[in-house]
């Protein structure tokens, strides 16, 4: 019932937790760019090193980080396998019909798998270390320029924060309804795929109803407090850049530059 799901905020105090959410989002983007700019193992190693440093600075236990990876194990292995079999390449080890295992193929799939793992870990680090509220604050602040083309940024941010806020509530609710139906003998584990999908109806119907009910109630509560949207609203917590953000910025900038330099000057290995 109260099990913590993947990607949920991990409440400890650390260097990374205290960073400005805007910077963390920008850092994540820069990091993803760096991962895809890295064309050799030196670059990827640099990315991994920075990530490891961040994990340590965030005081997140390694097991927790690896749990995020566990969710995508299948995807990683599947894409890696496909790439090994279909990449082509020159140094061929084994060939059968359209399948072909080559040295280049193996290297390429290892590369891809590493990239995916790094991608998942760094994105989950963002949600581990940032509360949903400050995450939306950050997104809202970063998207402010789009107000010039009349996009309702504040409303979008509000939608996002409500959605994030409701994830744990609906998870709890699902668990509660699931328990209630299991107490009435519902079986969600056995049977084929069709039977399993059918078995979710007794959960989905009450869950949807309760989601609508909650949405109604929330709307009423906001109306009752005269909520009218973004104009002239002030923030309870003002976002401010500090020395920590400067440090993180430098690390991010150094990583991207480093990866680009390595791409140009270090051709081997691969």
């Amino acid at each position: 019932m109260k099990d913590v799901s993947f990607g949920q905020f991990y409440p400890v105090d650390s260097f990374v937790h205290r960073l400005d959410p805007r910077l963390k989002i920008l850092f994540l983007i820069a990091y993803i760019v760096a991962i895809f700019l890295a064309t050799n193992f030196y670059g990827l190693a640099a990315c991994a090193a920075v990530l490891l440093l961040t994990v340590v600075a965030a005081h997140i236990p390694l097991g927790k980080v690896l749990r995020a990876v566990r969710g995508v194990t299948f995807l990683v292995l599947f894409t890696a396998a496909l790439n090994v079999l279909f990449y082509g390449g020159e140094t061929v080890y084994w060939e059968w019909g359209i399948f072909c295992v080559s040295f280049e193929g193996i290297i390429f799939s290892v590369f891809l798998a590493l990239r995916l793992v790094l991608l998942v870990v760094c994105s989950s680090l963002l949600t581990y270390t940032t509360t949903p509220v400050s995450l939306t604050d950050g997104v809202e602040s970063l998207l402010t320029p789009l107000k010039w083309i009349r996009l309702p940024i504040h409303e979008l941010a509000l939608v996002m924060s409500i959605a994030l806020r409701f994830i744990p509530i609906l998870t709890d609710e699902t668990q509660r309804i699931r328990n209630a139906q299991m107490a009435r003998g519902a079986d969600f584990e056995s049977g084929g795929i069709i039977k399993k999908v059918k078995a979710t109806i007794p959960i989905l119907v009450p869950l949807l109803l309760s989601a609508f009910r909650r949405a109604d109630e929330l709307g009423d509560a906001m109306d009752a407090r005269c909520y009218t949207g973004g104009k002239h609203r002030t923030k309870y917590k003002k976002l401010r850049f500090t020395w920590r953000d400067a440090v993180a910025f430098l690390v991010g900038a150094a990583l991207v530059t480093g990866v680009v330099l390595m791409r140009i000057y270090l051709s081997a290995p691969y």
Partner: peptide, 26 residues
């Protein structure tokens, strides 16, 4: 038998008969 808090929120079937019969069928 277990009746949870606010058990009315676990109703799901189209008719009262189907909902009550759910546990029996299971």
């Amino acid at each position: 038998g277990m009746v949870f808090q606010y058990p009315e929120y676990q109703l799901f079937a189209e008719t009262v008969r189907d909902d009550v019969a759910f546990g029996l069928k299971n």
